[in-house]
Design a protein around this nucleic acid. Structure first.
Length: 290
DNA sequence: TTGTGTTTTATTGCCTCC
DNA sequence: GGAGGCAATAAAACACAA
């Protein structure tokens, strides 16, 4: 339920003192902490005082505002008596009292004993009441502060989450872009390979005692056959024997069969074989992997 | 008028500090 | 051990709708 609270007006006060705080502050130039030395409290109305007579009929709590008063303010008997004779039950503080306390709270939310007594004297309250008011006020302030902190954190969280979501979207977008580019590249490479493949004359290497070996020239560029590009560890002797072999013993014949990539691959000896890149029987030299 | 929700005042129990 | 602070909570005061 909502709604501002309507506090009882102090205009019906019978003490003859101004009840409006602003008027009071103006007329007496009161600082919130300023307590006149010997002026009666302008807040000593009839509506803001606990009925102490009623309270005293019952057993006192272990530490009530009465005990606190008795323990701490023994020299304050006159004022206590005045309060004790207030006929009414517990009442809320008046607007003026609350405004005065609020201003005092703004200055310092902690209450030293001297200040407590002065405030009580000036407001027509018991020091214990002032202490309790400050305590409750601190609790309210803390609650509000927690709510503020929560709102701040929530706003920060929402902002960060929005950023994070944006980054996720950006990441997905870039990922998709990479996939598309990869596909494009793959397609281009395939097209290029196919065009090269169509120019190649598949070669059939065959020896009477061996199964036919088909080698794609695409896998073996001319420069690979040049002596300059044959690794040094192949001796000249070995080199010449290869050339000799290519010249006479292994006539190349065109192969009309349609080679698949797998078949082609199967013609190459395994790269990580135990031959360490040396000639393998049954495989042409240009299919060796160094 | 009454029921209900909210706010304020006060109490209680526990803790820390001196 | 006492004073004072805090959290939890009771109780009173109050607003408001039905």
């Amino acid at each position: 339920m909502a709604g501002g609270r309507v506090y009882p007006s102090n205009n019906d006060s019978t003490d003859g003192f101004p009840n409006n705080l602003s008027v009071l502050l103006q007329n007496q130039r009161l600082h919130p902490l300023f307590i006149p030395e010997s002026s009666p409290s302008p807040f000593l109305g009839t509506r803001s005082i606990v009925s102490f007579e009623d309270s005293l009929k019952t057993s006192r709590p272990k530490r009530s505002i009465f005990n606190m008063f008795d323990e701490q303010e023994n020299g304050y008997d006159e004022y206590l008596d005045e309060c004790f004779h207030q006929p009414e039950k517990k009442r809320r503080l008046t607007v003026d009292q609350i405004q005065f306390l609020e201003k005092s709270f703004e200055v310092d939310n902690k209450l030293e004993p001297e200040r407590k007594i002065q405030l009580a004297k000036d407001l027509g309250l018991q020091p214990g009441q002032v202490a309790i008011w400050f305590q409750n006020r601190r609790a309210r302030w803390k609650t509000k502060q927690l709510e503020k902190d929560y709102d701040t954190l929530l706003a920060k969280y929402n902002s960060l989450k929005a950023d994070y979501d944006d980054l996720l979207k950006e990441k997905d977008k870039l990922k998709e872009e990479v996939l598309q580019l990869t596909d494009k590249l793959q397609t281009k490479e395939n097209e290029q390979r196919n065009s090269e493949f169509s120019d190649v004359k598949p070669l059939l290497l065959q020896e009477p005692s061996q199964k036919p070996i088909v080698v794609s020239m695409a896998a073996c560029k001319q420069e690979d056959i040049d002596s300059d590009h044959i690794p040094q560890y192949y001796s000249d002797e070995f080199h010449s024997s290869l050339l000799e072999a290519a010249d006479s013993s292994y006539p190349f014949e065109p192969d009309q069969s349609d080679l698949s990539q797998d078949e082609e691959d199967s013609l190459h000896p395994p790269a990580s074989s135990s031959n360490f890149g040396f000639p393998v029987e049954g495989y042409p030299f240009w299919s060796w992997t160094y």
